[in-house]
Nucleic acid binder design. Structure first.
Length: 730
RNA sequence: GCGCGAUUAGCUCAGUUGGUAGAGCAACCCAUUUACACUGGGAAGGUCGCAAGUUCGAGUCUUGCAUCGCGCACCA
């Protein structure tokens, strides 16, 4: 075989081998410095006055390892970045890591559990230090995995959410919110997980439909319905709708003596319009400490609130003989006692209702009244809505605009306090005696301004999303760093549709609030990556596909383009191994195309000034030009799923199957004119093909480029990653 | 309950100004050591969920319905 290819690189004699190529190529890129836009300018690749193009990588959870979803993020963002870089933009893709407060702490707690330890009873500093070590150890592995995906991000600008400069920005925002009266410390009802011992925002709550018993209990002259008799010890208000004729003999504020679970009590009638007359008996008693609705009724009527259940889910002394019991154990015992006392009217067996659970562990959320820091979201949301409605932000796919709008219109205040150690400490002091709180960045406030008691440090940390919502400007060094001036607002925010509220909408609000500008122009949301059967991947189902298994088996290029073809934004994608395998074949096809072109173009160099093309080649050039303009337009519209498919089709089924096949005859029996024309066409077309495919399949194309460079007189001697994107036929 | 999607070839999905349906994979037939078996050629496969409406013409626009998925909501 060797004698057929006297002049060919020996690499080309074997099938394309990603394993022998990828690390070497990534190293070349990284050493070139071209991931950094400043160096591209320095080296004359990018014009100093070029338009910027910026993407913030969603900060990867530092404790984890790369999953298929990350694979998709890295691929899409790298495609955008590489394309824009080739188009001459001053291109910055800034990578980062997230301490991922609660998520990481949960992972670490599981590890502790396995070791027979528990975070409770551990010293705070000790626990923090352990989680920090754990995170730092894991973070180096995730970073190498991000590299292995071919990500052309600027590692010199990498950020971590716990970096002092990021924390500093977060603190300033916290103080600014207070100054603008958008922050308050409130004794409010919050969602509490008794397993994880922390409160949550509304978004960390999952809904679960359950079938439980529904109890009708005799409460004096009334019958009240409840699914949770164990909360009823302290119920001393009985509420009904003011227009309910059944109860018109009772007046608001009227007192009634009645026999209750642990003896006689005095109840007060409350008339409130929130009661649904159609539901149950139209009468209910309220437990303001442990129920959102009840809390609101109590607030409206200025009623007492009493804690019945403690933070561990156990009954307090108010429950009398049941005190100390966990609510799950207490419920049947309470009903038994009430039945004996004749207080149970009836029990409905199959009551279907929705209960709130902790999104991590499934434990039923027990609302509790707690003093926490809240952000008033309404004013922030209104500004964001204004920007969204006047189309300052493009949503891809578009329907996410409606989804965001709906959420923003109904937004509630954001509890940003978390009772965990792994996170950014809240820079505030608390008065234990009157519960007042003070934002104190400089550590200068020591006594309560209300009651003059000595203050203590707030031991809570921020909700992770509070810091990540400031990511686009915090990473760029707001306000003074030149990067902020050069790259903000960023261009595209590409992330999972799942976290539109958690992250995207909050970034818009905080970005607008702090910098006065929407932090990005386009929101590109991708869907979930599912297994081959279209099932959500989960550890418990055992169907998790590790992207690194696929990349090592089929090559990163095959994995990347396999994730992209047919993957429209916003819709979920079934990841099939067959598909990835077929793109491995494609990488090899490109390899063989190169081998063929280089062998038949022996002795020829591509010359961009060549004009003596045959009619046939001119027609092919026209077709090629149309193809390039078409896909360039689609690249600009973020339609990567179409471009990938078309590029695949053009390379394989036009260039290889038709053009190369007919070339065989030309080189065998064609005229000299035909041969020269065809050689010029093949060389120039192959060059364009690898350029177009480079954002999708960066490794194999870069490798082919290096083999081509010897053959093409006019070819840029730099790396393909900084070669100009083809424009029509140039 | 409200909202948002989806429903097109066996499977996964494209189909952007309305002009009698496309790709990849799988399956089928044929070829063959070729730049490439990580191959080439060919054929097959769909009343575009259902029903109305607008239109000369609807996968595409309107309305209703059905099924599936997701999000939001304080029904005790």
């Amino acid at each position: 075989m060797d004698k057929d290819f006297p002049d060919i690189d020996p690499k080309l004699l074997a099938p394309y081998d990603p394993a022998q190529t990828e690390d070497r190529i990534y190293k070349l890129w990284e050493e070139s410095g071209f991931f950094n836009p400043d160096i591209c300018i320095e080296k004359g690749i990018t014009k100093p006055d070029a338009e910027p193009f910026t993407i913030m990588m969603p900060p990867t959870n530092a404790n984890g390892s790369l999953h298929a979803g990350h694979g998709l993020v890295m691929t899409i963002e790298d495609i955008m970045t590489r394309y824009k870089r080739m188009r001459g933009y001053k291109t910055l893709w800034l990578p980062g890591l997230d301490h991922a407060g609660f998520e990481t702490q949960v992972v670490y707690e599981k590890k502790l559990e396995k070791e027979g330890r528990s975070r409770f009873g551990m010293n705070r500093e000790e626990l923090y230090k352990e989680i920090l070590d754990f995170t730092l150890t894991n973070s180096s592995s995730i970073k190498s995995q991000v590299r292995s995906m071919g990500s052309s991000c600027d590692w010199s600008r990498e950020k971590f959410t716990l970096d002092p400069d990021i924390v500093n920005v977060v603190y300033k925002t916290f103080a600014k919110l207070e100054k603008d009266r958008l922050l308050y410390r409130g004794k409010r009802i919050v969602s509490w997980c008794s397993k994880h011992q922390t409160s949550f925002s509304d978004l960390e709550i999952a809904d679960e439909e359950r079938t439980d018993k529904f109890y009708y209990l005799k409460y004096g002259p009334f019958v009240i319905g409840t699914a949770r008799p164990e909360t009823k010890f302290g119920d001393k208000y009985v509420v009904m709708h003011p227009n309910d004729d059944r109860y018109k003999e009772y007046e608001n504020g009227q007192k009634i003596d009645l026999e209750w679970i642990n003896g006689p009590i005095t109840a007060t009638i409350i008339k409130d319009e929130s009661v649904d007359m159609e539901f149950g008996t139209g009468v209910m008693t309220i437990t303001p400490w442990h129920d959102m609705t009840d809390f609101e009724i109590a607030e409206r009527h200025n009623l007492d609130k009493e804690q019945i259940i403690n933070e561990q889910g156990k009954l307090l002394p108010i429950a009398g003989e049941f005190a100390g019991l966990h609510i799950s154990k207490a419920r049947p015992l309470i009903i038994e006692k009430m039945q004996k006392k004749g207080l149970v009217d009836k029990i409905e067996e199959n009551y279907k209702h929705v209960v709130h659970t902790c999104y991590k562990c499934g434990t039923i959320i027990e609302p509790q009244i707690k003093s926490q820091w809240f952000i008033k979201m309404k004013p922030l949301a209104l500004k964001a809505l204004e920007k969204i409605e006047n189309s300052s932000i493009e949503y891809i796919p578009e329907h996410y605009k409606k989804i965001s709008t709906y959420w923003l219109e109904n937004i509630r205040d954001w509890n940003i306090s978390r009772q965990i150690v792994w996170g950014i400490p809240i820079p505030a002091k608390i008065c234990d005696s009157c519960d007042e709180g003070y934002v104190d960045l400089e550590n200068q406030i020591n006594n309560c301004k209300k009651c003059d008691q000595k203050l203590r440090q707030d031991m809570d940390t921020f909700d992770t999303w509070f810091s990540s919502s400031q990511w686009p400007f915090a990473t760029l060094g707001f306000p003074a760093n030149p990067d902020f001036k050069n790259y903000y607002p960023t261009d595209v925010m590409e992330t999972a549709g799942e976290i539109i509220f958690f992250w995207v909408s909050r970034m818009i609000m905080l970005g607008l609030y702090v910098t006065g500008e929407v932090p990005f122009k386009t929101v590109y949301l991708h869907g979930l990556v599912l297994d081959a059967k279209g099932q959500k991947m989960s550890k418990s189902k055992g169907n998790v596909i590790n992207p690194l298994d696929l990349t090592s088996k089929y090559g990163t290029d095959a994995f990347r383009i396999g994730l992209i073809v047919g993957n429209t934004p916003g819709t979920s994608l079934a990841l099939s191994e067959d598909k990835i395998r077929s793109y491995k074949n494609f990488a090899n096809k490109l390899w063989n195309i190169t081998r063929f072109v280089l062998s038949v173009c022996e002795g020829e160099q591509y010359d961009s000034k060549f004009t003596k093309y045959t009619e046939r080649d001119l027609a092919l050039i026209k077709e090629r030009g149309d193809f390039i303009s078409e896909i360039t337009k689609e690249m600009d519209e973020f339609k990567f799923y179409i471009v990938a498919e078309k590029a695949y089709h053009y390379s394989w089924h036009s260039f290889a199957d038709i053009i190369l096949e007919e070339s065989k005859a030309i080189f065998l029996e064609g005229s000299n004119t035909e041969k020269i024309s065809r050689k010029q066409f093949l060389l120039s077309t192959l060059e364009k093909i690898v350029k177009i495919l480079h954002p999708f399949m960066p490794f194999v194309t870069e490798e082919i480029w290096s083999l081509l460079s010897a053959k093409n007189k006019d070819q840029d001697k730099n790396l393909l990653m900084v070669a100009p994107w083809p424009i029509k036929n140039l």
